[in-house]
Amino acid sequence: MSSLRQNLLKQGLPPLPEPGSHPTTRSTSSGASYGRKRDYSVLPWKNYFEQVQDVNTGGSTFRVYMRGNTGTKIVFLHGGGFSGLSWAVLSKCLTDIIDCQCIAPDLRGHGSSNTDDDSNLSAQQLASDVCDIIEELNADGSPIVLIGHSMGGAIAVHTSLQNRIHSLVALIVIDVVEGTAMASLNTMHRVLQDRPTSFASYERANEWCVKSGYVRNLESARVSMVGQLKKAENPTSTPHQSISTVNEDDAQITVRNSTSCLVWRTNLQASSQFWEGWFKGLSANFLSVSAPKMLMLAGVDRLDRELTIGQMQGKFQMQVLPKSGHAVHEDCPQKVAEAISNFLKRHRLANSVS
């Protein structure tokens, strides 16, 4: 593995694809393949979430995926470029363990949400959006747990400090630390430039997702990658096109498997002006939140000095899952669900499913 790849993985960034890594079956020296080809087809969100709702807040409409009808409301905030579907497998695992309601919105400029300005991904705007969504969905004032991954973890902290979520009872941040995040900003452009710009089909996208290590869990990749892509405005055609369909909501979406058919939904390169605002001051802000807190990391090397001191002083609980990549909750959904459920039960915020 190259030193660049090792550094990117250490910093918790999406890895570069392995060069020449494309086979789906093992081959003998004679060229004959054996073993079963892996299934990279899309899994429908209905296998994991029970309903989807479009929440209107002023001039914006946010797509929100939900599971569960009783118990503490857990609001999941995805990372930059991801979508609410990133939490699909974890939500199912979690509701199998504890009585809770999982709420996973597509943030501004992501997934199927449409806003008055999809390009404004400032921390202040995203946190305000989250508050708006929660106020629309939590009229009864139920206890709220905020859980965020990467960019979403930073936004969860910003949201906690806005003092608009009066029923906030816990905060969980997944694999984002100010020190390593700030240090990695200079390499993020290179990471984004080196990933594919387009995919011929959802299946190809899912295959890249798993083989590159972007998400290591095939099941999660098959349900979540579709939320990160959109049809290209002017896809190039080929003489021999194949046509497949993908179920999204109740509609059949036709996908023409030609070159450049699918591109990334979110232009993360264009959001670079907001990156520093997401992460600057994050450690101090995280420690200042009065609600019970947990920091979940893929490796202890991600801790910066301020958080190391805070952890030694018992200001938050830390959970390390060293066999996962940056997308901890997608790579190890069952282990993450167990850690979250134990944390919430410890603070008497959730009960086990009877």
Results as ranks from 00 to 15, higher is better:
residue 19 P to Y: 14
residue 100 C to T: 07
residue 340 I to L: 13
residue 303 L to S: 00
residue 225 M to H: 12
residue 284 A to D: 13
residue 240 H to D: 12
residue 289 V to L: 10
residue 200 A to R: 15
residue 275 W to T: 01
residue 14 P to C: 11
residue 218 L to A: 13
residue 181 A to D: 05
residue 210 V to P: 13
residue 8 L to C: 14
residue 140 D to Q: 15
residue 68 G to M: 07
residue 348 R to G: 04
residue 140 D to G: 13
residue 15 P to R: 01
residue 304 D to N: 15
residue 185 L to S: 07
residue 111 G to C: 08
residue 318 M to F: 06
residue 74 I to M: 14
residue 299 G to I: 03
residue 185 L to W: 00
residue 62 F to T: 06
residue 337 A to M: 09
residue 184 S to P: 00
residue 88 A to Y: 00
residue 339 A to Q: 01
residue 176 V to Q: 02
residue 127 A to L: 08
residue 125 Q to L: 07
residue 328 V to K: 00
residue 73 K to V: 09
residue 102 C to N: 06
residue 236 T to S: 12
residue 208 W to A: 03
residue 326 H to Y: 08
residue 14 P to I: 12
residue 278 W to R: 04
residue 52 V to T: 14
residue 10 K to M: 03
residue 162 Q to D: 12
residue 80 G to Q: 00
residue 334 Q to P: 00
residue 116 D to A: 07
residue 220 S to I: 06
residue 317 Q to Y: 00
residue 36 R to W: 01
residue 190 R to A: 07
residue 331 D to K: 10
residue 204 R to V: 03
residue 161 L to W: 13
residue 178 E to H: 09
residue 165 I to L: 10
residue 174 I to D: 00
residue 120 N to E: 07
residue 131 C to A: 14
residue 117 D to I: 10
residue 337 A to C: 10
residue 347 H to E: 08
residue 279 F to K: 04
residue 182 M to S: 13
residue 194 D to W: 07
residue 288 S to R: 10
residue 102 C to K: 05
residue 6 Q to W: 05
residue 38 R to Y: 02
residue 141 G to N: 05
residue 310 G to R: 05
residue 2 S to Y: 07
residue 304 D to Q: 13
residue 105 P to Q: 04
residue 228 Q to N: 13
residue 37 K to A: 12
residue 212 S to G: 03
residue 259 T to W: 09
residue 125 Q to K: 14
residue 190 R to Y: 08
residue 277 G to C: 10
residue 315 K to D: 15
residue 112 S to A: 07
residue 101 Q to L: 09
residue 189 H to A: 12
residue 91 S to K: 08
residue 269 Q to E: 11
residue 174 I to W: 04
residue 166 H to Q: 15
residue 312 M to F: 14
residue 183 A to H: 11
residue 116 D to L: 06
residue 258 S to G: 14
residue 153 G to P: 11
residue 137 L to H: 08
residue 35 G to L: 06
residue 179 G to Y: 02
residue 296 M to I: 14
residue 62 F to W: 15
residue 271 S to G: 05
residue 160 S to V: 06
residue 349 L to Q: 06
residue 341 S to K: 04
residue 133 I to L: 10
residue 172 I to N: 13
residue 80 G to W: 01
residue 123 A to K: 12
residue 158 H to E: 10
residue 170 A to H: 04
residue 118 D to F: 01
residue 40 Y to N: 07
residue 285 N to P: 09
residue 198 S to P: 08
residue 14 P to N: 12
residue 129 D to T: 11
residue 232 A to V: 04
residue 189 H to R: 12
residue 40 Y to R: 08
residue 55 V to L: 07
residue 52 V to G: 12
residue 109 G to H: 05
residue 130 V to C: 02
residue 176 V to H: 02
residue 166 H to T: 15
residue 123 A to W: 08
residue 77 L to E: 03
residue 265 R to P: 01
residue 135 E to K: 15
residue 316 F to L: 10
residue 101 Q to N: 11
residue 172 I to M: 15
residue 83 S to C: 13
residue 5 R to F: 02
residue 75 V to M: 12
residue 68 G to L: 01
residue 306 E to D: 14
residue 322 P to E: 03
residue 176 V to I: 15
residue 68 G to H: 07
residue 72 T to N: 07
